[in-house]
Design a protein around this nucleic acid. Structure first.
Length: 434
DNA sequence: TGGGGTTAT
DNA sequence: ATAACCC
């Protein structure tokens, strides 16, 4: 046997255009054609292209946006329910093309099309292979080699990407971009090249051009705020700097795992798999505000968050075995510093969660207030700017019944084993059940 | 900077 | 429990 090299992958990154604004325009078609912004608190978190043409940017202050664009129509987007629902419709639609779909936020998905492409090529007679055409743009306008199998595979990927966008438009009324390449990093980078509602395929020969088109390492997905700052301190600001930097020194500075991963990113290499997201691992609701400084005030807010969460949990059907409370304290210095406490959801409450129960509210609020007092000394003055409640450690069912099935792997226990693994090590703070 | 999410340590 | 990353 000759060692056989696995074929390179075909990955598509699908990125919806100004997603929240699109959902709002579907909800209220009168908004179409007008400059529209979606507002959360005092921020325009996203806006449609009419608004962008008039100078509105993402995450712009409402004041600045109105000043730039007085005709701007604003809708409140603090309730994510409709966005979340539409987001999962998109993911489910994409899963029809390949089960290997990974969500990134609400408006982006990666799909591994390697097998789908392989199957399509097998269906094709050999003499038609070189007749395969591209859908959409080719990055750099690079010429296609009809005798290069890798080219052909990516072109078939571009055809499938076009079918995906057609289906999104026809079935959901949504437009978006797509990028097709041999890994997630490159697919993501190339999807943004032609912007709204277009798609682009990257052929391997243009890979270096694509990554060097980035003006700064911070634009590299996977290099965030913190790492970019540390790299800058090392004199690394361009992708070329990152490529040329001593690997050993980088490992000492960032640790071997991060160093090796990001330096590979710098060469356009990314072997991370498209990991099917499946159902969410956690449900959370949060609210930010200028000031919350009393326990009763906090309880009120926590009750609101909890009520929404319980209805979501109920719809999902799975049971959360852990609950967490998150706070943000007012402090001008620390950027985005949050504290949290979590504990197990008592078994008798877990049981009640299915039947749309109302009397879980009171005991759950009691638990959350204990977590609250564990973090906040309510006898001292305090100033919070955010509260968040999170349910996680979700499991299919609570089948602890004894019976003839004991010792067998049941569908519920196998469904639960994966998510059950990750949290048993975590420490929960002890709150006595009231 | 909102209101979410994920994984690694 | 926190810190990093993503949108």
């Amino acid at each position: 046997m000759v060692p056989t090299r696995s074929p390179s992958r075909v990955i598509v990154h699908v990125d919806l255009d100004c997603f929240y604004a699109q959902v709002e325009m579907i909800s209220n078609p009168e908004l179409k054609g007008k400059p529209l912004g979606v507002q959360q608190k005092y921020l325009v978190v996203t806006c449609n292209y009419e608004a962008r043409k008039l100078g509105v940017k993402k995450l712009m202050n409402v004041r600045d946006a109105k000043e730039k664009c007085p005709q701007l129509v604003l809708v409140n987007g603090e309730d994510l329910t409709r966005y979340r629902e539409m987001s999962y419709k998109v993911t489910e639609l994409l899963e029809e093309f390949s089960p290997v779909v990974e969500r990134l936020g609400f408006d982006e998905n990666f799909v591994d099309l390697t097998e789908t492409v392989g199957r399509r090529l097998q269906q094709l007679p050999n003499d038609e292979l070189s007749a395969v055409t591209v859908c959409g743009h080719v990055y750099n306008n690079q010429s296609i080699n009809p005798h290069d199998v890798e080219h052909i595979r990516l072109l078939v990927g571009s055809q499938i990407a076009a079918e995906m966008r057609e289906a999104m438009c026809n079935q959901l009324g949504l437009t978006g971009c797509a990028g097709v390449a041999s890994n997630k990093l490159l697919a993501k980078l190339v999807s943004g090249i032609f912007k709204p509602n277009q798609q682009t395929v990257l052929l391997p020969e243009s890979c270096q051009d694509l990554i060097h088109s980035l003006n700064h390492i911070k634009e590299m997905p996977g290099i965030g705020y913190k790492t970019a700052k540390r790299l800058e301190a090392l004199g690394i600001s361009s992708v070329r700097d990152l490529q040329a930097f001593s690997p050993k020194t980088l490992e000492k500075e960032l640790g071997v795992a991060v160093a090796q991963r990001i330096q590979k990113l710098g060469f356009g290499e990314d072997n991370s798999p498209v990991t099917p997201s499946g159902p969410p691992q956690s449900f959370s609701e949060e609210d930010s505000f200028k000031k919350c400084s009393s326990e009763v005030e906090a309880r009120k807010k926590i009750e609101e968050l909890l009520a929404s969460l319980l209805s979501r949990i109920c719809q999902d059907g799975r049971k959360p075995h852990t609950v967490r409370l998150v706070i943000r304290r007012f402090s001008s210095e620390k950027y985005c510093s949050r504290e949290s406490r979590q504990c197990p959801v008592p078994p008798h409450i877990i049981q009640k969660l299915g039947a749309g129960n109302y009397d879980v509210m009171t005991p759950m609020v009691d638990i959350l207030m204990k977590l609250f007092r564990n973090m906040v000394n309510v006898k001292m003055p305090f100033h919070l700017t955010l509260l968040s409640v999170c349910f996680c450690n979700l499991r299919a069912l609570t089948t602890a019944k004894k019976g003839p099935m004991d010792g067998y792997v049941t569908s519920s226990s196998s469904a639960t084993s994966h998510s059950g693994k990750r949290s048993f090590k975590m420490k929960d703070t002890h709150v006595e059940d009231s």
